[in-house]
Design a protein around this nucleic acid. Sequence first.
DNA 1: AATAGTACTTGGCCATACATAGTACCTTTT
DNA 2: AAAAGGTACTATGTATGGCCAAGTACTATT
Lengths: 113, 113
Amino acid sequence: MNLENTQVQMRKGILEYCILHIISRGEVYASDMLDELTAARMIVVEGTLYPLLTRLKNAGLVEYKWVESKSGPPRKYYTLTETGSHFLSGLTETWEELIHSTNQITQKSKTIV
Amino acid sequence: MNLENTQVQMRKGILEYCILHIISRGEVYASDMLDELTAARMIVVEGTLYPLLTRLKNAGLVEYKWVESKSGPPRKYYTLTETGSHFLSGLTETWEELIHSTNQITQKSKTIV
DNA sequence: AATAGTACTTGGCCATACATAGTACCTTTT
DNA sequence: AAAAGGTACTATGTATGGCCAAGTACTATT
């Protein structure tokens, strides 16, 4: 049980939330997402992102279309489906509740200690 | 892939952070923790909490002493170790960074949409 | 002695993040 | 045209943690 490991655990689920958010803003492909996540200092690697996108696709939350590229193989450009949009709303609520609950616990600490 | 499942995933790691916080405020046993988590609307069940406490103990982050009860079997009262205290500091930093990263991504959405 | 309640334990299941290796396609170089 | 390098996506196996469910052990009540 080390810090690094716990950091990974903390990211679980949240990553899915962030990806859906990024896709909700318009058509993007995997490298775009990686760039944006990296810019926000959320470290993610290919081996995590691609399987996640496949899961989202299979669950009907996102869909993609192939678009040819000028500098390499074609790319999958993702968009949110209707279902995905609703799912994202639910996730947003969950996330905010989780933040609130955590704050309630951790800030209670500060007032007493 | 349903909401409930993702909620579970989001809780991962965060729960550990909350538990350490609660223990950092003074001696408590499992039921105390459950009460406090429930009060903060963070739903946790025994089968999650007890194994987590065992992991924390094995990792040397917490320690406990047996205290007899007037209404049932003896209880394990937990306290944070020196190591646990440092670990909690690290986790706090990680948590705040994670919040910050997530905000950066989700709030960017709001300004554009 | 039997019952009910409290506290803790254990084994198995599932989903996700990650590491790693691999496939496929395109462009550039020679 | 063949080779080399880069980009984009795929597939497999591992580890971890939350949860369910059943079980153990102790105490107090009836």
